[in-house]
Amino acid sequence: MSQNTNNYYLPAPSLWPLIASIALFLMAGGFAMQINDIASGHYVLLAGILVFVYLLYGWFKEVIKESIAGFYNKQVDTSFRWGMSWFIFSEVMFFAGFFGALFYIRTFALEWMSKSTLVWPNFVATWPTSGPAATEALEAMGPWGLPAINTLILLVSGATLTYAHWGLMKDNRKQTIIGLVLTIALGAIFLYLQAHEYAEAAFTMDSGIYGSTFYLFTGFHGLHVAMGTVMLAIILFRITKGHFSSHNHFGFEAVAWYWHFVDVVWLFLFVFVYWL
C-alpha cells in the first residue's frame, strides 16, 4: 500500500463495530440476567467480557498498526486529540452528575427531611448519615489515614508520569520506562490500598445514603484508575517495543491526559466525599 502522508486516512470496512455490538449485547444481557438471579447469567456476562477484551485488543492493534505504517497525518493526529479531549469531558460530566447528586442530598434533601414533622419526625440531619431508618451508628471513613496517603500516591504518580513524558520527548527511553513503571506501580498500590480500605470499612453499600455515595463514587473512580493503569501498562509495553518517537507519541499523551483526569477526580472525591 502506498502512503501519501498528506492524505486523511480512511479505513477499510471493518467488523470491529459489529463485534463491539455483540460484546456489549452479551455484557448487558448477561448482567441483566445475573442481577435477576438467572442461572446462566454469569456465563453470558463472562462471554461478553471476553469478546469485549478481544475487541479492544483487536481494534487498538489495528489502529496501532496503521499508526506505525505512517498512515496518520497531522490532521488525523488532530482528530485523535479532539476525540480524546471530548471523551475525557464526557467522563468529567459522568462524575459531575454524581457530585451534583451528593450536593443535592447534603444541602437540600437531608435538611428538608430533618425539618419534616410528618415523615421521620425525629430525624436530625448530620453528615455522614445512614438515613432515618438506620439502626446502628455510622462510622464514616475519615480523610486522614489511607485516603490522604492515596491522595499523595496519585499526586506523585502524576509527577512520575510527567517525568516519563519528558524522557520521551528527549528520546531518553530509560527515563520514560522508569517513569512509567513508577506510575503504574503507584496506580497499583492505590488500587490495593482502596481494596484494603473497602475490606476494613465499617459500612457497606447498604449503609444508607452515605454508604451508597461513598462506594458508588469511589468505586467508579477505582474502576477508572484500574483502566488507566492497564492503559499505562500497554503504553509501557509499546515503549519497550520501540513505538513512539520524541515528537510523535499521541498514544502516550492520550493515556497521560486520562491519568491526570483520574487524579483530578480523586482530588474532588477526597475533598467532597472523604473530607468535608
Binding site: 447528586a101 443535592y104 442530598i105 434533601a109 437531608l110 427531611m113 415523615v119 421521620w120 448519615t129 445512614s130 438515613g131 432515618p132 431508618a133 438506620a134 457497606t204 453499600m205 447498604d206 444508607g208 445514603i209 452515605y210 454508604g211 451508597s212 455515595t213 462506594y215 458508588l216
Partner: peptide, 12 residues
C-alpha cells in the same frame, strides 16, 4: 442495596 432514592436511607 443503595439508598439514593430511598428516604429511609437518607436518599430522596
Amino acid at each position: 442495596g443503595t439508598s439514593f432514592f430511598d428516604a429511609a436511607g437518607g436518599g430522596d
